[in-house]
Computed example of a mutant assay.
Amino acid sequence: MTPTATDAQQSAEIQQVIKPVPFFFREKYSELIVKGNFMTLAACPALVEEGEWLAHQLVQQNQLLNGNLKMMQEVDTSTRMPLCNQHNCPKMLAGPHTTYTWLDENKWPVEVPAPTYISYVQKWIDGKVTDVAIFPTDTSNNARHPFASQPSTPSVASPTSNPLSQSSAMGSTGDWLGKSSGFPEHFESTIKSIYRQMFRCYAHLYYGHWQDFWDLGAHKPLNTCFLHFINVGRVYGLITNKDVEPMQPLLNIWMAKDFLKADGAA
């Protein structure tokens, strides 16, 4: 008897149903190392200007992310290679349907190995946060540079281009985020671009290296850092629902537990 188109469709649906759910999308593995309200960690103090607060949050999130990335950059004594290497991770993947590409010198999207992509991101972010035109250090304008103690990033090859084209300025006149603290008009679009790249690194850590974090007993700290990252991004609209789609099942678990607000950025 020849299989029909309906039979093939049903078979595909069955395969989809029985496809194993990644461990990091299962509730029993969504635990954290701290308890409490993450909204408290994100809330801007009453006497702090929001631009300064977001600059502070950004450096904190960058430090936490770099700590998790460093674990995957440590050399495995058995293979003498980092856990995230060009052989294990030839592409910057976040699941079977998401591959992140970099922009080359001609602004063409190109696929690069995950460790190369991550190195580019770290170098690019470091260049942004130490740029006084974006994060001013002139205290005479009531601006304070929150990155004075920014940890040095690993020495890496210089990226050939910014990973994301910058959005247009918030407006040619009037107020903008961080204006009173000396931040430029494009400050908000810059930190949103940085946040999107940081998310991509987190997504790869889950899809490419969750088992490594489990073996190291570090999956709970990873969850905690990522939840804090997502919460800040949602509270201040630094990241969109579309951006976080690859990790949505985990976010759904945390929303069901009231760890995250259900109404994220549009």
Results as ranks from 00 to 15, higher is better:
R234W: 03
G182D: 05
H209C: 09
I194W: 02
L222V: 08
Q197G: 04
Y120N: 07
S149A: 13
V156G: 09
T224P: 02
I191R: 10
A143E: 06
K123S: 07
N231M: 13
N162S: 11
G174N: 08
D212C: 04
L222Q: 01
N231D: 06
F229I: 10
P184L: 08
S180N: 13
S172P: 09
T224S: 12
V129Q: 02
S158A: 11
D212T: 15
F213P: 01
P136E: 04
V132L: 15
I230A: 03
L216T: 07
A148I: 15
F183N: 00
E188P: 06
F199K: 00
S119D: 06
P221F: 00
W214V: 14
Y207V: 02
H145F: 11
G127N: 12
R144D: 04
K192A: 04
Q150H: 11
S155R: 14
S155Q: 12
Y202V: 00
K179F: 04
Q197C: 12
S168Y: 09
S168L: 07
K220W: 01
N141S: 14
S140F: 11
F183I: 01
R196I: 11
H186S: 09
N141F: 13
L227Y: 06
T190S: 13
P154V: 03
K123Y: 04
Q211C: 10
Y202R: 01
K220Y: 05
K179P: 06
D138Q: 14
F199L: 14
G127P: 04
K179T: 03
P151D: 02
W124H: 10
A169M: 10
W210P: 10
A157M: 12
E188L: 15
T190V: 13
S140G: 14
S168F: 05
V156Q: 09
I191K: 12
R200N: 03
F213E: 00
S165K: 08
W176Y: 09
K220F: 05
I134K: 08
P136W: 08
T153F: 04
K192M: 12
F229E: 01
Q122H: 08
P184D: 02
G182P: 06
G174D: 04
R234F: 07
F199A: 00
F147P: 02
G182H: 01
L222C: 05
F226Y: 09
R200V: 06
S181Q: 11
V121G: 03
V156H: 09
T190K: 15
H209K: 15
Y195L: 01
E185S: 15
L177R: 09
S193M: 12
G127M: 07
H204S: 12
T173S: 15
D212P: 01
W210I: 05
H145I: 03
P184E: 05
N162C: 11
Q150E: 06
H186A: 07
G174L: 10
S180E: 04
G171I: 09
T160V: 15
Q122C: 10
G171D: 03
V156S: 12
T139V: 15
S140H: 14
A133N: 13
S119R: 08
S155H: 12
D131P: 05
F187Y: 08
S181R: 14
S181D: 04
